[in-house]
Design a protein around this nucleic acid. Structure first.
Lengths: 337, 337
DNA sequence: TTGAAAGCGCTAACAT
DNA sequence: ATGTTAGCGCTTTCAA
C-alpha cells in the first residue's frame, strides 16, 4: 500500500495525495475528503523512510540512552521529552546497551533521522576528538561530562553534577555525624565513569578528615545491579569488618544494600547509617526513607534541551552547566555512637 | 556525506562501496581496504532511511510499549530482545504514551521499518476489527488480551496471565489467612484494562466467601503512580475504616502502600497484611519482602517472541497462551488475629 | 487546483 | 571484480 495506490484508488495524482497528507492549502475540499476516506479505507500509512529520505530537514532531536532499565534516567527522559515537544520539536529515543558504541549509534541515528541535535544520556567519559568527529550535529552530554577523555571543552556541551564533589559531600554528611568507619558500595573504582568519580570523592572526604582508606571497606560489585549490590553487602557483613556507615553511589543499589543490612541483622540507621546519590522516586518509599543527594532530574533534562536548542537555532555556542544536588534528609542516617 | 562522496573519494563506483558496506564477497581486498579507510576518514554513516526504503524486507521485529517507566515491563523487554536476537532478528523498540493510539503507532512503525512482526506490550483491551485491520503483519499482545473488545480470537495472538483469576487467587491467600476486612488499591474499577480485571477477581474472591463488598475499602488512585498510591492509602487510614489486609494490583503501588501504612503507624504484616501482583525486582528488597504473585516476565517476553516468529516464518497460525503466576511468600502477609 | 517529473541515498540486478 | 542503472515511496518544484 503506497501513495500511488491511494492516488489510483481516488483517481488523482500522487502529488495531490501528498498535498492532502501534508495539509497543504491548495486542494479542493471535495478531493481532500475523497483522499482522506481512501486513506482510512485502505489503512494507508506513509512510509516514513521514504518521507525522511526526501525531506530537507526534520524537527527531530535524538536522545541516546545507555542503560535500558536505569530508573534514574526515566525522570530525565520525561523532562527532556516535554521540553523538546514544548519547543515544537520531536524526540527520538534510542536505547543502547552497555557494550554498544554510543557515538556510532548516535551518528547512525543522526543520519537516519536527519537529527538536528543530540542528547547523550549516561554515556562514557572517554570520548576522543576522533570519535566525536563523526558527529556533525550539536550534542550535549547529559548527566556526565568528559572527565577522562581528551576532549576540549569547546567541542561539546554538557549538563552534569560534579560527581566527585557531590560524593565528597555525601560522605561529609556521615563524617559530621561522627562516623569514622565508613564503607563504600560501588560498581568499580576504575570504570572511567561516575563510579570512579564518586569513589574519588569518597577518598577525598576521608583524606580531609585524616582517615586512612581501608580497602576492606570498599565493596565493588562490578555492576549496577541490585542483586550484585545485595550480595556485596552481605559479604561485607560476613567478613565482620566493622563499619558504622555506608556510602552507596546510586539509590537503586542503596535500596538493595538496606535490605542486605536488614537481613544481616543490622538496624538502619542505629547500627548502620546509609547515604546515597541520585534521588530516584523509589527511594522515597523505603523504610526508613533513604537519605540521599537528589540530582535535579527534571532540571537536568530541561537544561540539556535548552542548551541543545540554543545551539541548533544558533542562539549560542556550546556550554557546560553544573547542577547541584539537594540533600534529602531521610531516616537512614543518624549520629555515630 | 553520501555513498556517492565516498565512491568519488575512492575513485570507485557506488555499487562497490555498497558491496563493501554490506559485506558482499566479490570485492578485492585492496579496494575493500581503501573504501573502509575512506569511510573512517569521512565519518560516513549510511542513511538508513534510504537503506530501508530499498531493502525488500528487514529482519526487524517491533515492540511497542505503552508506559515509559513501568518497571514491570523492563524485564519483559530484556527477555524479548534476547529471544529476538537469538533468532537472528532485530528488535525495534518504540515507547508510546498513555494517550497515544498504539495501533496507529504500531502501523506507522511497521511501514517505516518494514517490520516482519509486532509485539504490543501493555496495551488496551478494546481493539476492534476495524482498528486492527490497519496492521497487516502478525502481532502478539503481551501481558494482556482482548478481554473487552470485539476482536475474534483468531485475529491475533496473545500471551498473558488470567488477571481476574490471579487477582482472585491473591485475595484467596489473604482469606485463607483469616482476613475478612480486605481493602483493595487499584487504578480504576472501570479502565477496561488490568485494573478492572483484577478488581473483578477481588470481588469474586470476596463473593466466594460470602463477604459483602464494602465500597469504603476500595481505594481508586486514578493512576499507576506511586505518589497517588501513597496518598490513597493515607486517606484510607484517615477514614478510620478498619481493615486487616490490603490487596494491591501492582507491585510498584504496593511498595508505596507499604510506606503509607508504615507512616500511618501500622506494622506490616502484624497490623495489616499486604499482597500484590507483578513481581518486579524492586519488591524483593522491601522490608518485609513483598508477598506477591510473580508474573513470569522472562517467559512472557520469550513466549511472545516464539509465537510471533512461528507466525512470521509460517510455522504456525495465531494462538493464545496463558501463563501462570508464582506465589512469592514474602513477609508481608500473616494470619489475621 | 491539479499533474508530471525530478531526485533524496541506497541496493541489487544486469552488464562488462 | 567492478560499473551502470533502475527503482524503493515520497515531497516538491515547475507547468498547465
Amino acid at each position: 500500500m503506497t501513495i500511488k495506490n491511494v492516488a489510483e484508488y481516488c483517481g488523482v495524482s500522487v502529488s495531490t495525495v501528498s498535498r492532502v497528507l501534508n495539509d497543504h492549502p491548495d486542494v479542493s475540499e471535495a478531493v481532500r475528503a475523497r483522499v482522506m476516506a481512501a486513506v482510512q479505507e485502505l489503512h494507508y500509512v506513509p512510509n516514513s523512510s521514504a518521507r525522511d529520505l526526501v525531506r530537507p530537514q526534520s524537527d527531530a532531536i535524538g536522545l541516546v540512552v545507555r542503560g535500558v532499565g536505569n530508573p534514574f534516567f526515566t525522570a530525565v527522559i520525561r523532562a527532556a521529552e516535554q521540553a523538546v515537544n514544548r519547543a515544537g520539536y520531536t524526540l527520538v529515543l534510542h536505547q543502547i546497551h552497555t557494550e554498544e558504541n554510543e557515538l556510532l549509534a548516535a551518528a547512525s541515528l543522526a543520519r537516519a533521522k536527519k537529527l538536528r541535535g543530540l542528547i547523550l544520556l549516561g554515556g562514557c567519559f572517554d570520548y576522543t576528538p576522533e570519535q566525536t568527529a563523526a558527529l556533525d550535529i550539536p550534542y550535549v552530554c547529559c548527566s556526565f561530562t568528559n572527565s577522562f577523555g581528551s576532549l576540549g571543552n569547546t567541542d561539546y556541551s554538557s549538563v552534569s553534577i560534579d560527581d566527585q564533589a557531590e560524593a565528597r559531600r555525601a560522605v561529609e554528611v556521615l563524617l559530621r555525624k561522627g562516623h569514622r568507619r565508613i564503607a563504600v558500595l560501588l560498581d568499580s573504582i576504575r570504570d572511567h565513569s561516575i563510579s570512579e568519580l564518586r569513589y574519588r570523592g569518597y577518598c577525598q572526604a576521608l583524606g580531609d578528615h585524616g582517615i586512612r582508606l581501608d580497602p576492606a571497606l570498599v565493596a565493588e560489585t562490578g555492576d549496577f545491579d541490585m542483586a550484585a549490590a545485595y550480595d556485596s553487602v552481605r559479604r561485607l557483613l560476613e567478613r565482620k569488618t566493622d563499619f558504622t556507615a555506608l556510602f552507596v553511589i546510586a539509590d537503586s543499589m542503596a535500596i538493595a544494600a538496606m535490605k542486605a543490612l536488614h537481613d544481616g541483622g543490622r538496624r538502619i540507621p542505629e547500627d548502620c547509617s546509609i547515604i546515597a546519590i541520585d534521588g530516584i522516586e523509589m527511594s522515597t518509599y523505603t523504610v526508613p526513607t533513604l537519605t540521599t543527594l537528589i540530582q535535579p532530574q527534571d532540571e537536568m533534562g530541561e537544561e540539556a534541551v535548552r542548551i541543545l536548542l540554543d545551539m541548533v537555532e544558533g542562539r549560542a555556542g556550546n556550554r557546560h552547566v553544573r547542577l547541584h544536588t539537594t540533600l534529602r534528609a531521610g531516616g537512614s542516617v543518624c549520629r555515630a555512637n
